[in-house]
């Protein structure tokens, strides 16, 4: 059974200028002890997806179709207390911005002890556990670090503290929302390795969200590609990277700066802009930017699956 499975999820925000359909028919699966990568450019609905999973959608957002199952239970049917019990020990999250993720006016130790509020341990034991976890993410002098405030750490250290906090929960699944975007390249590699190592130690599943293709290829077992609130392609990392079926995925891989071997004046991009989510086209969402566009693309695309490799495209390449 999957730890987390999302079935045909549609999320809509009601705004003063009309309904904004942020997610449409999103289906994805995070199996036990696997790392699933979620790729997509800014505005593709990644944050909405995380908030929906955590039950933290903004007041004007609603799930109007589909289900989110965490360990087989539909989170829409959980009470507020059950949801709160799930956040942390069930699903732990590392957010994108390490600078803002910690409360600036409380010591690290206090914050790490506070999140253990469910545990029956004494305060001193909780502090010990916090220090131990900090050591496991290689924070030097962990006991002293507990007495310091967030602003006394660098960005990379803060991100490791945020990771430590998430792992201290020993979650069933870790959601990492672009955990390396705010870090420089050296720290990025170190952070990825750390996440990989800790995921193996704890044996949790992970949903890793990034727009960095190289990192996804390195870290993940499966990949889900999102575009404008829809899953356009999903499969194993091998399938998606070696034999991409959707034109958008092929474009993303083509545009990865790491793949440029010769000096170019301008890095490749996908021409055009994200569609307006208030008035979605009836047909394929990517069609206006697609170089393979045909007449049939005006019709809603099928979800074409072969060997567990899904592509939502009329012209999906067969391999």
């Amino acid at each position: 059974m999957s730890v987390l499975s999302i079935e045909d999820l549609c999320v809509t925000y009601s705004t003063s200028t009309g309904d904004l359909r942020a997610l449409r028919n999103v289906t994805l699966d995070v199996p036990r002890e696997r790392i699933v990568g979620l790729v997509g450019e800014s505005g593709c609905g990644k944050s909405t997806l995380i908030n929906a999973i955590l039950g933290l959608l903004a007041a004007n957002g609603r799930i109007d179709h589909g289900r989110i199952l965490f360990q087989g239970r539909n989170i829409a049917e959980l009470s507020a207390d059950e949801l709160r019990a799930m956040r942390g020990p069930g699903i732990a999250t590392v957010f994108q911005d390490p600078m803002g993720a910690l409360n600036p006016v409380f010591r690290i130790g206090r914050q790490m002890i506070n999140i253990q509020y469910r545990s029956k341990l004494s305060r001193a034991e909780k502090a010990n556990r916090a220090a131990e976890t900090l050591r496991s993410v290689r924070i030097p002098d962990a006991e002293a670090a507990l007495k310091r405030y967030p602003h006394e750490f660098s960005g990379g250290m803060k991100q490791r503290i945020a990771i430590a906090m998430a792992l201290m929960m020993k979650p069933a699944i870790l959601i990492a929302d672009e955990p390396t975007t705010a870090l420089d390249a050296t720290l990025e590699v170190a952070t990825i390795e750390l996440l990989q190592e800790l995921q193996r130690d704890i044996g949790c599943s992970m949903l890793f969200i990034s727009h960095h293709m190289g990192v996804i290829a390195e870290l993940c077992d499966d990949v889900v590609v999102m575009y404008a609130g829809e899953v356009v392609e999903s499969g194993t990392t091998r399938q998606v990277f070696l034999q991409p079926r959707h034109p958008y995925t092929r474009n993303l891989i083509r545009c990865d700066p790491a793949r440029q071997h010769t000096r170019v004046r301008q890095l490749p991009t996908i021409p055009g802009d994200l569609p307006n989510l208030r008035s979605r086209p009836r047909g394929c969402i990517f069609a206006p930017r697609c170089e393979m566009r045909k007449e049939i693309c005006e019709e809603p695309p099928p979800q074409d699956v072969s060997n567990g490799h899904m592509a939502r495209c009329h012209l999906a390449v067969e391999h």
Binding site: T93, F95, G100, N103
Partner: peptide, 11 residues
């Protein structure tokens, strides 16, 4: 952001 973090830990 840190309030979102606190919520994500189920405080």
């Amino acid at each position: 952001q840190h309030v979102r973090t606190a919520r994500a830990f189920g405080l």
